[in-house]
Amino acid sequence: MATSPQTSVSVTSVIVETSPPARIGTRIAHPVLRTTLQQFLRAGAWVADFGPGPAELIFRATRLSEAPARILGTPRGLHRHPVFFDNFQAEWLWTAPIPDPRIARDAVILYFHGGAFIAGGLNSYRRHTARLGSISELPVLTVDYRQLPDAHPNDSLDDALAAYHYLLDQGFAPEKIIVSGDSAGGGLALRLALTARDQGLPLPAAISVTSPWADFDSTARMAHANANADAVLPAAGPAMVVRRGIAINGVLDPSWSVVNHDFTGLPPILLQVGSREMLLADALAVAQRCAEAQVSLRLQIRASAPHTLIHLGAGLLADGRDAACDAAEFHRAMIDSAATGRSAA
């Protein structure tokens, strides 16, 4: 069972929960990641910032890391089925006793992976999405959306919309769809919901995101106390991706960042983030938008959890398993509330 939050504070429609102190595994992860993965990412960001050529080289190199991720393997008992779209690929994942989603159009998680729009994919995220679907008792459609340098995040949004349309066209009721993602994929999940609302599409039952990259403007993150506390993301990383990949001719359109939108009408949101993450600034901005729009938000701030390892480390870290169980409980509550016509927010 998940560990109950230590503190719960209600602010209008927003409930902020802080977890108990991190366990030993999470605390050890910080210095290990800070001296290994973060240094690798810091070096990559430094090289990429020399100009368009080096940036493209680094972006393509990070994309190449997806192929060897096949060695991570597939969990025993996992069923997989590819889905091919015009510009990208997705795959169904489910485990018994969850029925085949190609036959039983009941409830589903639509998942968007992280990776700063330059990394991540079906191979590297398969074990994570399979675990999340299994404990949520739901099948998962995980989307390998287009990324930099071959496609802009606006193209990634088009792919997200195509995947959402696919579920609706397949007969999945919108109130039985959970839209989920982490980091860049978490921001993409939120942007999908906002775009669906603006286009008059039926909205999903809920949104479940981990450490969403919700603001492409680095100003607030760089000014936050966590700018130098993150164990994974160097402060220069997201800013470099924006300068060298997302901004067009040096111009960053504010509408590309979800924190610059009115959240009115969005479904309930679960947002999980680490207390020492750089993207805590983005999470707090999302919370502010939800409060202003009276959108139900459950903001879980997990003590000392490294970026995205809140869930991705669930196979190794007890704190990660707690977070994944909390997410699964939220998913089931949202689906069950739709089935009974009650509000579980």
Rank of each mutant, 00 (worst) to 15 (best):
S65A: 06
A130T: 11
A227Q: 12
T36D: 03
G274P: 02
A305M: 15
V16S: 02
R191S: 09
L316Y: 05
N228C: 11
D282I: 04
A247Y: 04
L192T: 08
H224L: 10
S65M: 11
R127K: 08
P149H: 09
T12A: 13
S304L: 15
P238V: 05
L309I: 07
E91F: 01
G171Y: 07
P21D: 13
I177A: 09
R298K: 15
G77H: 10
V258Y: 11
V9W: 05
L188Y: 00
A285F: 02
R76P: 05
T142I: 14
A173I: 07
D158N: 15
W94K: 04
D158L: 07
A247D: 01
I109H: 05
S257T: 14
P82Y: 06
V179N: 00
P234G: 03
Y164F: 05
I58N: 09
L188K: 07
S255E: 14
A163E: 00
A151T: 12
I28M: 11
I301T: 06
E292P: 07
A45S: 01
V286F: 06
L188A: 01
P20V: 12
G265Q: 12
N260H: 09
P52R: 09
V232R: 00
A184I: 01
D106V: 13
S218P: 11
H331Y: 10
G133F: 02
D319K: 11
Y166M: 13
F88K: 04
A318N: 11
I135F: 07
A338H: 00
R289Q: 08
D262V: 14
R221F: 02
A338N: 01
M1E: 15
R27K: 15
A285V: 05
R131K: 04
M278P: 01
D155K: 02
H331P: 02
H113E: 14
N226E: 01
T12Q: 13
V16R: 00
D159K: 03
V140R: 04
A323I: 08
A324W: 07
E17W: 13
D155T: 09
A45F: 00
